[in-house]
Write a protein that binds this DNA or RNA. Structure first.
Lengths: 186, 186
DNA sequence: ACCTGAACACCGTTCAAGT
DNA sequence: ACCTGAACACCGTTCAAGT
């Protein structure tokens, strides 16, 4: 990634943090970078491409916290908490992650990371995608619901709720793993 | 709701269906109603208030399919399928439901409807909100993921995935109900 | 009570032109 | 290769004025 592209993305992040996602305009970014709005089009062909770049940047920022030691359920928990923590610091992030497909390199690595944890839990190959969708949909959805106010005003009780939900989902994963085991070895 | 308000909301729905949520502008709505953009402000104080009105309309449209006969798991399934079916017909709906709090009259009725089903499943009062959040977050999140392309291109396989997920969630609910039963009656 | 005209401060994007 | 100026077709919203 050339320096200019990174500079543009950084400016977009600062604006989103300070004034929300709606304030992220080509003109506002250009102002902050110190350039004309049209100059951005050399680096990102459209605003949509720039937002996709932001999603990629987001997923990269999410990865480092996802270490690969410890039991699978703790590793899944780590990713889940990273997502929620990140969304709490950057409320616009959940909205963005849910409104665009995440097909960047880091996005794929994150999915593979979750698959690996699910494999260790005993989920068979043909159920990996489904369980990954189930878990990520819930985690991103929870973060988006908190950020949008769908769960009502911010409440410390939401943390306990999130923990209990994750524990229930871990049990759900174990059940799915066990059921498939029964079929294979009677 | 006065006739004018209904007329404005109807116009907004038609525009969203035909050209997407981003095309829903005060000017486009006014054009379709046959009035100046500023005339809308007599009926909805801002565009934000108008979008809230759309969410209310949405939830009302979702309610009639939620009948109250049959076992609790089938009733929950009915609501879930209504949501997904509606989101498939109106891809902008899931996005809107996830980006604004739904505190209209019909929104509250829908929540109460889900609570009642969960009660019959054996969920204790203090877990009702949590389980309702868990189910609705997944269902709306799944619909939003399909609409946004987060799950990749449209795939008939997503229906089977949705069914299996719902079955797993019903089992999760039964487990939570059973655990709480164990504590109360040893 | 309800609507209009003109204006303000914004958008994303294209296109020809500059260095 | 990278950037600029001017322009086009849009936004939400305010305010004074009309009936």
């Amino acid at each position: 990634m050339s320096g200019r592209r990174q500079e543009i993305l950084d400016a977009a992040f600062v604006i989103a943090d300070e004034q929300g996602l709606d304030a992220v305009s080509m003109r506002a970014i250009a102002d902050r970078v110190g350039v004309t709005p049209m100059a951005l089009y050399r680096h990102y062909g459209s605003k949509s491409a720039l937002l996709d770049g932001m999603v990629g940047h987001l997923l990269t920022a999410l990865m480092p916290e996802a270490v690969s030691t410890g039991p699978w359920n703790e590793r899944l928990g780590l990713i889940a908490h990273s997502y929620r923590g990140f969304a709490q610091q950057h409320p616009w992030a959940a909205q963005l992650l849910f409104s665009r497909p995440a097909i960047t390199l880091d996005g794929i690595r994150l999915v593979e990371f979750i698959h690996q944890a699910l494999r260790e839990a005993g989920i068979p190959e043909h159920e990996l995608t489904r369980m990954e969708h189930l878990v990520t949909t819930f985690v991103i959805g929870f973060a988006a619901s908190e950020a949008s106010g769908r769960f009502g005003p911010p409440d410390p009780g939401h943390t306990a709720e999130f923990e209990a939900d994750l524990a229930d989902l871990v049990r759900l994963i174990q059940n799915v793993a066990t059921q498939n085991q029964d079929i294979t070895s009677p």
